[in-house]
Write a protein that binds this DNA or RNA. Structure first.
Length: 461
DNA sequence: CTAGGGTTAG
């Protein structure tokens, strides 16, 4: 209850007046602390509890899960098993949420196996969590297997599957599912429509997207909100209809937010529109002066047109505002262990082999006709250095490691914290062909499935 | 009277 209202002080006050808090009160307090961001305090209280039942364990695991400290959530889960605590549905759901967040497919599969082995009934909630986990790990085949096997489905279940399909580039399938959902008389809500509109966007169905958008209010009585406006701007932007996107923003009945201008800015990057890109960036910075993503996108637009003056002015502004680019980080899961790579990272124990593989990649890609896209390197450096800088992007390191360490033909799965850069996207397409390897990259907000030299995003992301 | 505390879709 206190967690919901985010009143840690009030909760703490009430709690401190209890003469002898029992398991229930302590569990509630663990939840309240975790829910208000005080996860470490929650953990201290949890560790000091004289008895901990499964609900208490779950409160703590959910606490970690909700603030994105997913690794700790999984660690606590394994500790829970070591101590022989009975694992219930809620805990499994929290653990699946953590796996989804990390993109940890192997761990998620293990949990699914655990469910089957222990004959835990797949309820609507649990099934939905499984679908979400597989979707966010880029395994839509398994996500849909779970979906179709479920007897009872609610709006969360449908929305989750639709979101997964849209996120993984299967826009048409997403919309088919929506039609089926309507046939089954499940009422869509505002979250469902985010997936519907994203589905239209990735499928390039502009008019249909516009129809669905209008139907929200007309047929379902759902008022479109920021996210929906953002989707339509993305829809127009992806189709290259930048004027329509601008007109749409100008006609918004609510004040355009960072996401609205961000969608426009991204379209400007793809369609190389400097003037509009500068305008969108100004709008974003008016709302959020330290938005590093906007600076990086604008810099990319300048660099793409070899406008080095523009590039260095962006660098100056960033310095003046005290903004720095979030460092890129790519993660690859291998044998249940997560390997992290940062830009130019030489700290991996198998670094020597990785370096050799990077050399081989470079040679074989060049033979296949790959030319480094040096345009998007953030700052103006010499051409040769640039090519070198690109080689060290975190996803290339992770892919090189995957090629070395994973068995022949095993899909390489990468999770990245930022957007994929143009050069890495290009290079990965080549790698998928030259090395005959499927590569799945989850970036900040979507998936790229690379196969035979092509990507599921159709080169728009 | 013996509950109450934990979980899913953007």
């Amino acid at each position: 209850m206190y967690a919901e209202f985010a009143l840690p002080d009030a909760a703490r006050r009430v709690y401190s007046e209890l003469c002898c808090p029992d398991v229930v009160a302590q569990t509630a307090m663990v939840g309240a602390l975790a829910g208000s961001g005080e996860v470490n305090l929650a953990r201290d209280l949890f560790d000091g509890m004289p008895q901990r039942d499964p609900i208490a364990w779950n409160a703590m695991i959910a606490g970690y899960s909700q603030v994105g400290r997913s690794k700790e959530a999984l660690e606590l889960f394994s500790l829970m098993q070591v101590e022989g605590v009975r694992v219930g549905e809620a805990t499994i759901v929290s653990v699946l949420t953590a796996c989804a967040h990390l993109g940890a497919l192997a761990q998620g599969k293990w949990v699914h196996g655990y469910i089957q082995k222990n004959k835990i009934r797949i309820t609507v909630t649990l099934g939905t969590a499984l679908i979400d986990m597989y979707s966010k790990c880029g395994d839509m085949r398994r996500a849909m297997e779970v979906f179709w096997s479920m007897g009872e489905k609610n709006v969360y279940t449908w929305s989750s599957a639709m979101s997964g399909l849209a996120m993984n580039g299967a826009g048409k399938e997403c919309l088919e599912l929506f039609e089926l959902m309507k046939q089954e008389h499940v009422q869509p809500n505002w979250v469902t429509f985010i997936s519907v509109l994203r589905g239209c966007s990735v499928a390039g169905l502009v008019d249909k997207g516009r129809e669905y958008f209008d139907s929200m209010r007309d047929e379902y009585g759902i008022e479109p909100w920021y996210e929906h406006y953002g989707c339509i701007i993305d829809l127009y932007g992806r189709a290259g209809r930048l004027d329509d996107a601008v007109n749409f923003i100008n006609a918004m009945p609510i004040k355009p937010h960072v996401g609205a201008w961000g969608a426009l800015l991204n379209a400007c990057r793809i369609y190389k529109n400097i003037k509009l890109g500068e305008f969108a960036t100004r709008k974003i910075l008016e709302l959020e002066s330290k938005n590093d993503g906007a600076y990086v996108l604008l810099s990319n637009i300048y660099a793409d047109s070899r406008n080095w003056k523009g590039v260095s002015s962006v660098r100056e502004s960033m310095k003046a505002e005290g903004v720095s680019k979030e460092p890129g980080c790519s993660v690859i899961e291998l044998g249940g262990k997560v390997h992290e790579f940062f830009v130019g990272d030489r700290s991996h124990p198998r670094y020597k082999e990785i370096e050799l593989m990077l050399g081989e990649m470079s040679r074989r890609l060049r033979l296949a006709g790959y030319v480094a896209r040096t345009n998007e390197v953030l700052f103006d450096i010499e051409e040769e250095e640039k090519e070198d800088a690109l080689c060290w992007h975190s996803e290339k390191l992770a892919i090189a490691f995957g090629l070395i360490a994973l068995g022949e033909g095993v899909t390489i799965r990468i999770v990245k914290n930022l957007r994929v850069c143009l050069d890495c996207h290009d290079a990965t397409k080549f790698i998928s062909k030259v090395f005959e390897r499927e590569i799945v990259v989850r970036d900040r907000n979507r998936f790229h499935h690379f196969k035979d030299g092509a990507c599921s995003c159709m080169d728009y992301w």
